[in-house]
């Protein structure tokens, strides 16, 4: 399939062959028909999966195999980074098999990840009309509702999803985030602990736990979880990118708690690696202000204010403070 036109032709051909085929016609066993393709897929050889599932090959398949073939083809395109083709395949499949929950929710998932949430949501709703307890559909709606601010609705769908999908840390994390947005930090902390049971040493999850603990007033527990998040980030290459954020967050908390020396030390540890980090500069300026050193504060604020391209809000705050100090424009 090289484009929308050929995809449409393939759809027509497959549609007619699929519908024309009598349900009772003998078919080769499922494993035999797609065993080779499945093996290629399992070996992550997605290019060859696409190469094997050509129009003539797919026309030979019976209905059950055809569903699976569409799924393998769609997933292969997806993993090859060809999202538009994956969407095309799943759209055709969903038209041919409108009551197939797997295909419908898979299409909805891809649309959701492409941020086409209006279309995704409609599909999730239709999946729930077929199977009111479908966990994937509840999860999709929960995520869309969370992103759009419909928090109560999001929480409801997460809770329904968790009745079906209990062992996915991602679901517990999303649920915790909604609870935190609704300022139910105690329940959010419980949910995030569930995520940690399933995915221990996950630095972002530990950071979330630290934040929820702090919002409950459990400062020491918050610091301990933040330290655990830092250790996890140091140990894991996949979470290296949040390491500076963890240090900045710790510096911010130490500052809020009046531990100025510790806060300064933490902020400066970030500045050693990122000398123009506006938040670290701003924190150091706040500490200097508290200590009455307005010149030092102004110097750091000048540096932070110059970062308006990378951090417009931080720069605007720094400029506003400089103006109050009498040194800004």
């Amino acid at each position: 399939m090289n484009g929308p036109a050929s995809a449409a032709l393939l759809a027509l051909a497959l549609s007619s062959s699929a519908h024309a085929a009598p349900e009772t016609a003998p078919r080769p066993p499922v494993q035999d028909a797609l065993a080779g393709v499945q093996l290629l897929f399992d070996q992550q050889d997605y290019g060859r999966v696409v190469g094997r599932l050509t129009e003539p090959e797919m026309q030979k398949l019976g209905r059950q195999d055809l569903r699976r073939a569409y799924d393998l083809l769609g997933q292969s395109y997806q993993r090859l980074g060809q999202q538009d083709r994956a969407i095309g395949v799943y759209q055709l499949a969903a038209q041919l098999f409108p009551k197939d929950l797997n295909l419908t929710t898979h299409l909805a998932d891809i649309l959701h990840h492409q941020e086409l949430d209006d279309q995704a949501r409609a599909l999730y709703e239709s999946a729930l009309a077929i199977h009111p307890n479908n966990g994937s559909a509840h999860l999709g709606i929960a995520e869309i509702a969370r992103a759009t601010g419909l928090l109560e609705q999001s929480q409801e769908h997460y809770e329904k999803c968790l009745l079906e999908i209990k062992t996915d840390a991602r679901v517990w994390r999303g649920y915790a985030e909604v609870l935190a947005k609704r300022r139910n930090y105690s329940k959010a902390a419980d949910a995030i602990r569930k995520a940690l049971e399933l995915d221990p040493d996950n630095a972002p999850t530990l950071q979330s736990l630290a934040q929820f603990q702090r919002r409950q007033g459990k400062r020491e527990e918050g610091y301990a979880s933040l330290a655990a998040a830092t250790a996890a980030a140091d140990a894991s290459p996949r979470h290296q990118d949040i390491r500076p954020e963890l240090s900045l967050r710790k510096a911010s908390w130490l500052f809020e708690d009046g531990r100025l020396d510790d806060s300064l030390q933490e902020a400066e540890s970030v500045l050693l690696r990122f000398p123009n980090d506006p938040f670290a500069l701003w924190l150091r300026a706040r500490i200097a202000l508290k200590r009455g050193d307005e010149n030092a504060a102004a110097a750091d604020l000048e540096a932070a204010a110059s970062q308006s391209r990378s951090s417009p809000f931080a720069a605007a705050v720094a400029k506003g403070m400089l103006k109050e100090l009498g040194g800004g424009q």
């Binding site: 941020e115 086409l116 949430d117 209006d118 869309i144 992103a147 759009t148 500076p244 954020e245 900045l248 967050r249 911010s252 980090d277 506006p278 938040f279 701003w282 970062q307 990378s310 951090s311 417009p312 809000f313 931080a314 705050v317």
Partner: peptide, 16 residues
Amino acid sequence: ASGLRSEEPVSDRLMR
């Protein structure tokens, strides 16, 4: 609604 998910600089987010 996708505009909600755009990444923003860490410094801006932490400061806000």
